[in-house]
Design a protein around this nucleic acid. Structure first.
Length: 800
DNA sequence: CTTGTGGTTATTTTT
DNA sequence: TAACCACAAG
């Protein structure tokens, strides 16, 4: 192998998923639920998921968890039980039962949640290499995994550590990279102990300490060192040294207090305006350039709580900024209008209310257009007894309605007056929000597709009104991949791994940073605390907050401003001990000097090319229709669920098993077709008669393929081979080639299966195969001789 | 320095 | 609803 396709680069969840869906045939058909979908799934199956079976112990009094109300808490419980080191003997019986019941439910409905991907992979990796289910997986790991490299190791949790250990079970070389001072996700389960005791747990460890800091000035580096040292001795000793080219000058680092948050915000804006254009050198070799908007970052402990005044001030002064997590999707007027549409379907609001909501949203739609579109919603409520439920499709109604409205990005009126957030136009923002709403419909409908129409719309509208606003609280309003020249407003967590020439950390208030612990029901009312090793870390410790502060101050390359202003209530009035500690540092001035750094250049933003990875189907949409591609890929619109959805994937899964067995010398016969189809067929939205039809069709296709392609099977080289192709700078396409075989003539053939009659335009197929051929060549260094498309439905076969 | 009361608040986010 | 904090009283 010459290419990098043999190298997996990605997240642990991604790798676990890849392993399962490549080597564990029982898992091929299981789909991964997103967090939102998992929560819907748990509420929809509140008993079988164990939600309403479990007790919370409050002051010794048991109380059952409630559907909808406590599902987020229960999800946390389910994750901890499967991801952490748990002493199962200490769990109440009802809790153990609930967990078993939830895992069975996932299996029965052919789903994974994120946790289950890791859990199942780890469990299977304990089996023997001749095990029926896990054998192929174990053999793959044993024979092919040579090197395991883990980045950000300090943020691994117990199950991830187990996964790493299992992958190295047969002697693979292990390299972990991390900085224990930057463990900021303990409250999510990550265990610093993993990195702290790594050298004790492993044999033959070579430890390399990277003390040189090339990012920041000596002032910043010294401060960082002092902050980190607050956690001594519970950390790995190191001695960070400034080794870069950034210099420290008095006045670079300021620690200031203000009488109010408004004054603080005003000063930050003043300072940004004063520093703009000041010369800055990115690297030793680079020419100096003038600081631009995007060189400034304002980092908050909590953006949602404390960033309000600053945002107002930035907007007043027309300083461009980008911000995450402050805009709530369901607060957007166009999304409220969408909600009104479905309330109208249920007769909960009148037609006038729908019209008013859309006109109020000011997205360029007229009253006349709305009146012609309303019948689409009225049609949606005409469900009839005995008719197929799948006919009542929320997404289809939504898309038809939007189409009737005829909204386009360019027909949406621009922002009135004030400056736009970031660089996105209002049209793009509105489209993005409407796309998110489409995603919300998909999430809901996947879980509730099989409910009767009345119940389905009922549940949907209730969910829209009561649940969804919280589910989709943070929709990042920066649509697309553009990196605008704007001030960044972010939480300290989001800033991890980033750097800016100038950083502001405002609102360093007592009880906020470090954050106080909070009340209310928590996971340890459900799980006995003694059953979890080091349970306290989930609640957030002082050491955790110190590390967070360390991350905050070390994001700066040169200019750093720590500020405090009293919050609104007594609780947040006082200065944080962090502020006082930092202000004592010799490099800080507690008054801004009169003189601004000298010299002035034209502001010029550091330019970054965004990296984009597309799946093959994304690319296919692009070829078919660039506008539809934009709708799907950038804005997240989803097509309506089709009742036969899953059929094509199931047939592909059968083929994958057949070819994988063929590589092992096990040639399947036509008689196995029934069993194979029953094992892999997953059509969750099909009504019984359709399912039976699909099953018969699949068996016919598989049987015919196996009977007519014996030699092809015997000559199988690769099945479902992962490829990656760089189609343009910054754009990578990820895909899998169904099959690579050797033909009788000795030629190599790349085969793509089509499972349905749905015709795909000839030239698109050609483009697709071309990408495959390039991928194959990058993978093996050889050219493929033949490209084939095999249509499994009839005897169709195209060769190009 | 301890204890009681009344008031306030409920973060951070990835797969 | 639970837990933590500020403040005041002893």
């Amino acid at each position: 192998m010459t290419g990098l396709a043999e190298l997996f680069i990605g997240t642990m969840h991604g790798y676990a998923r890849d392993l399962l869906q490549t080597w564990v045939s029982e898992a091929f058909k299981r789909n991964v639920l997103s967090d939102v979908q998992a929560r819907l799934f748990i509420d929809r199956n509140s008993r079988a998921s164990g939600l309403t079976v479990v007790d919370a112990q409050v002051n010794g009094v048991p109380r059952k968890l409630k559907r909808f109300v406590n599902s987020p808490l229960y999800m946390q419980v389910l994750s901890i039980l499967r991801e952490d080191d748990v002493n199962e003997e200490l769990l109440p019986e009802s809790l153990s039962d609930a967990l078993l019941s939830y895992r069975k439910l996932l299996r029965d409905k052919n789903y994974f949640d994120f946790t289950e991907l890791l859990r199942l992979t780890v469990d299977l990796l304990d089996f023997d290499s001749d095990d029926d289910m896990a054998g192929a997986l174990i053999r793959h790991v044993r024979d092919h995994v040579r090197y395991v490299v883990v980045d950000e190791y300090q943020d691994t949790n117990p199950i991830q550590e187990k996964l790493i250990q299992r992958l190295c079970r047969f002697g693979a070389n292990l390299c972990v990279v991390g900085d224990d001072d930057q463990t900021i996700y303990q409250w999510r389960g990550s265990a610093v102990s993993n990195i702290l005791s790594f050298t004790d747990r492993q044999e033959d460890v070579r430890k390399v300490t990277l003390d040189d800091n090339f990012r920041s000035s000596p002032g910043i580096v010294t401060l960082g060192r002092e902050v980190a040292a607050r956690n001594d001795p519970d950390r790995l000793s190191k001695n960070m040294v400034a080794a870069g080219h950034q210099t420290y000058e008095r006045g670079d680092m300021l620690a200031l207090t203000f009488d109010s948050a408004v004054d603080e915000a005003a000063w930050i804006c003043d300072r940004i305006e004063r520093l703009r254009g000041v010369p800055f050198t990115d690297s030793p070799a680079a020419q100096p350039r003038g600081l631009s908007w995007s060189d400034f970052a304002v980092l908050f402990r909590s953006v949602s709580k404390d960033a309000g005044e600053l945002v107002d001030e930035l907007r007043r002064r027309s300083i461009p900024y980008v911000i995450k997590g402050l805009t709530r999707l369901f607060d957007a007027p166009e999304v409220k209008a969408c909600v009104a549409c479905f309330q109208y379907v249920l007769h909960e609001v009148a037609a006038d209310d729908v019209v008013d909501a859309w006109l109020g949203a000011d997205v360029g739609v007229t009253r006349e257009t709305l009146e012609t579109a309303l019948p689409i919603l009225e049609e949606a409520r005409n469900w009839q007894q005995g008719e197929r439920w799948g006919t009542y499709n929320i997404q289809r109604t939504y898309l038809r309605f939007l189409e009737a409205l005829g909204i386009r990005e360019e027909t949406v009126p621009p922002f009135g007056g004030g400056a736009a957030a970031g660089s996105a136009t209002r049209g793009e923002l509105v489209f993005y929000n409407l796309g998110k709403f489409s995603q919300a419909i998909s999430d809901f409908e996947q879980i509730y597709f099989q409910s009767a129409p009345q119940a389905k719309y009922d549940a949907f509208v209730k969910w829209l009104v009561y649940q969804a606003p919280d589910y989709y609280a943070e929709s990042d309003a920066d649509a697309g991949y553009a990196t605008p020249d704007a001030v960044t407003i972010a939480t300290v967590h989001q800033a991890k791994g980033m750097q800016w020439p100038a950083v502001f950390v405002p609102a360093i208030r007592k009880n906020r940073f470090p954050s106080k612990r909070h009340g209310g029901l928590n996971v340890f009312h459900v799980i006995p605390e003694a059953a979890v090793t080091d349970a306290d870390r989930y609640r957030g410790t002082e050491a955790d907050e110190t590390r967070l502060f360390y991350v905050a101050v070390t994001r700066s390359q040169k200019y750093l401003h720590l500020t405090h202003s009293p919050g609104d209530s007594a609780m947040y009035r006082a200065r944080s001990p962090f502020f006082d500690f930092a202000a004592k540092n010799q490099y800080f001035l507690t008054k801004e000097p009169e003189a601004v750094p000298a010299g002035r250049l034209d502001p010029r933003a550091r330019h970054e090319v965004p990296e984009v990875t597309l799946s093959f189907s994304d690319l296919k949409y692009f070829f078919e229709c660039p506008y539809e591609f934009k709708l799907r890929f950038l804005y997240g619109y989803n097509p309506p669920i089709h009742e036969a959805l899953g059929y094509g994937k199931s047939v592909h899964d059968v083929m994958a098993e057949i070819h994988k067995r063929a590589i092992d010398g096990d040639i399947v016969s036509g008689l196995d077709a029934d069993d194979l189809v029953d094992k892999h067929l997953n059509t969750p939205f099909a009504y019984p008669a359709l399912r039976a039809d699909l099953r018969r069709a699949a068996i016919r296709a598989v049987r015919r393929y196996v009977e007519e392609n014996r030699t092809r099977l015997e000559n199988t080289l690769y099945s479902e081979q992962q490829i990656q192709v760089r189609v343009a700078p910054g754009i990578t396409v990820d895909g899998r080639i169904d099959l690579i075989t050797r033909l009788d003539t000795g030629e190599t053939s790349i085969v793509d299966f089509k499972s349905t009659e749905r015709a795909q335009a000839e030239d698109i197929t050609r483009d697709q195969l071309h990408v495959y051929a390039v991928g194959y060549q990058e993978l093996t260094g050889r050219r493929a001789d033949v490209l084939e498309v095999l249509n499994l439905d009839e005897k169709g076969k195209t060769t190009s």
